[in-house]
Write a protein that binds this DNA or RNA. Structure first.
Lengths: 353, 353
DNA sequence: CTCCGTTGCTAAATCGGGTTAGCGCCCGTT
DNA sequence: AACGGGCGCTAACCCGATTTAGCAACGGAG
């Protein structure tokens, strides 16, 4: 069907040298091994003219390295998170000439181990284990055979695996400071979690950490959270219900919503009560979901840096791979990626009463 | 670091036979080649006890097949489309024990050819060339070397590549019929494209086809489109602007928005004019973007079957791969995947005047 | 008793590269 | 002239599987 691939043997023959020599020249070890300029040129010319490209499968067999990393996540579709995270990972990998295998476990441990096997069978050089929402995960013991990095996840048991996560605590502080800097000191309510550190959805690391940050920043300014409503799931309908419930008994001046979908519901509830954002109530949120800039007024939110998370994970993975080659010890650092503030239109200065 | 992988040689030694014999038994050709029951059992037992798994890299070198397919798209992050499409592709691949390489071209032809090379270097068995919005693409000539399928795209030049696309024309008919069945015959306006077949954003196949379907279904019922507003880009802000513009001069009873983001803008404009959905104006749309079920009232829309598109593409690719092995001719069929209606709350019966 | 055909298995080549060990040749020394 | 040593290159083995060709042992026919 297709014209057979050009192999090293073809290049060697065209240059009139042995395969060994051709290999040495092309791997850049020609100088070191005293190949003459003349031969070097002939080999390079032949390779160029024949458009030679090494067969990575073959190299993989001999050297055990396939210039490939596996990206395994629990869910790739739910939430846009996945897309940008993979994009970041993809580009970081591409910078080093690596390709990405994608796999999805759907939270199924058996599927996960099958995937890990399939990746090992294909001799991946490293693994990214990603979660689509920040949480603690059980690390399958099989992964210790290969360099690996946790992305958006923390190990349940202590392991020597590095982890890359968004800096949620600082994000919480930032959200709070946005309101403080606008002069808000009273009537600040939380929607989605809180007010206590135990009032959070199960398993959600993000909820706890955001809450910690919020309370920290407010506390430093001597400001109290006026109240909070939790949501069983962080979806618009629950944000709507929680905010409605709040508005029946309270008169908030500002809301900190735990994510943008909740904020969307909050907008709807505020609208139902005839309250204007931001004139009557300021709203800040987290995630920077696309809807944040579609809402009216556009939502001020602390962004999840999906792209950077993906990039960082792969960058960290590369240092793990290098360390592995150098027989170094594993460490297991936790890398925090900053969450940037997207200032838009949903926060107004608090009018001094 | 890790205990060396178990190889075929290990299994052979444990079973007290040659590698050849072990290979024959494990590939199921034992019977055919007259291996005794006794030996067969010994090999299977050894393989099981040692937890032998064939090294796919090695198999790839020998047989040229790596049980891997490449998924190349122009953008993987923009729009949720990508996630579900990849998910479908992933699952279809997994059903046959295949893995997926992911690549993103960002519409850059050079990047595309680099990616194709990288995939060829890794001996992929087939390629999915995906576009994130339906359009015609230039097919790089390199792809003819491998079985390939176009996903959500049509070839600019006629090629023998099969294509998998959503059935947009039928979707257009369905959207129109939703309104017809609710009794709407007058005051139906289009937002995003139309009324003429030339009033569409550049390159957008979806716009043309949806429009064709809409006009066809309305025409059959003897109903005329009352008017239309185009949008330079299908984003909420343009939907808002276009609908506002319309409302200044007309009193629509129903809107067909060309996608859900436009519909979101349309909702905002209707709200500005004090019009209620669906009591005053019914709205139907396309895509079934997540926001469709977050809007109030929930949006009735004709869904892009992302997951099914991904699955179908890989299924078609497998028949291409099989055909390729059998030295068959390439055909280049176009496969249309139905777009299902999601009936929600944005359409009300037309009150007879 | 020899010859032949089957049965049951294995040696060896192969895929496309990387890597080690070492072979000739030329030059300079003594 | 014999010897040592550097230079420039290559033969041969290796990775882990598949596959082709063929070998030994045995039994039955002639």
């Amino acid at each position: 069907m297709s014209p057979r691939r050009v192999t090293l043997a073809d290049v060697a023959k065209a240059a009139g040298v042995s395969r060994t020599t051709a290999s040495l020249v092309l791997s850049g070890r020609g100088r070191e091994l005293r190949i003459s300029q003349d031969v070097e040129q002939r080999v390079l010319k032949a390779a160029d003219e024949l458009q030679y490209r090494p067969n990575i499968v073959s190299v993989g067999l001999r050297t055990g390295t396939t210039r490939t990393i596996g990206f395994i996540s629990d869910t790739i579709a739910t939430s846009r998170l996945a897309g940008d995270m993979i994009k970041g990972a993809l580009e970081a990998a591409r910078d080093r000439g690596f390709m990405l295998f994608i796999g999805e476990t759907e939270g199924d441990a058996e599927l996960e181990s099958l995937l890990l096997q399939a990746m090992h069978d294909r001799q991946v050089d490293g693994l990214v284990l990603a979660s689509m929402f920040t949480r603690t995960i059980k690390v399958p013991k099989t992964v210790t055979a290969t360099p690996a990095v946790l992305l958006n996840a923390l190990p349940e048991q202590p392991t020597p695996l590095p982890a890359v996560l968004p800096d949620e605590v600082e994000a919480g502080r930032r959200a709070a400071r946005i309101l403080l800097e606008a002069g808000h000191r009273d009537g600040i309510y939380l929607i989605g979690a809180g007010p206590g550190l135990r009032d959070v959805p199960a398993e959600s690391v993000a909820a706890v950490e955001r809450l910690v940050g919020i309370r920290e920043a407010l506390g430093e300014a001597g400001v109290e959270v006026a109240g909070a409503r939790t949501c069983p799931d962080w979806q618009p309908e629950y944000g709507l219900a929680a905010t409605r419930d709040l508005l029946h008994t309270a008169q908030p001046r500002a809301l900190i919503c735990f994510n943008d979908r909740i904020a969307m519901g909050a907008y709807q509830a505020l609208d139902d009560f005839g309250l204007k954002v931001p004139a009557d109530v300021s709203v800040v949120s987290f995630d920077d979901h696309p809807i944040a800039s579609w809402m009216r007024p556009k939502l001020t939110t602390v962004a999840l840096p999906h792209y950077e998370l993906g990039r960082k994970a792969v960058d960290v993975l590369f240092t793990e791979i290098d360390r592995d080659r150098a027989d170094g010890d594993r460490v297991g650092d936790v890398h925090r990626v900053p969450m940037p503030v997207r200032s838009r239109e949903s926060v107004a200065p608090s009018l001094l009463d």
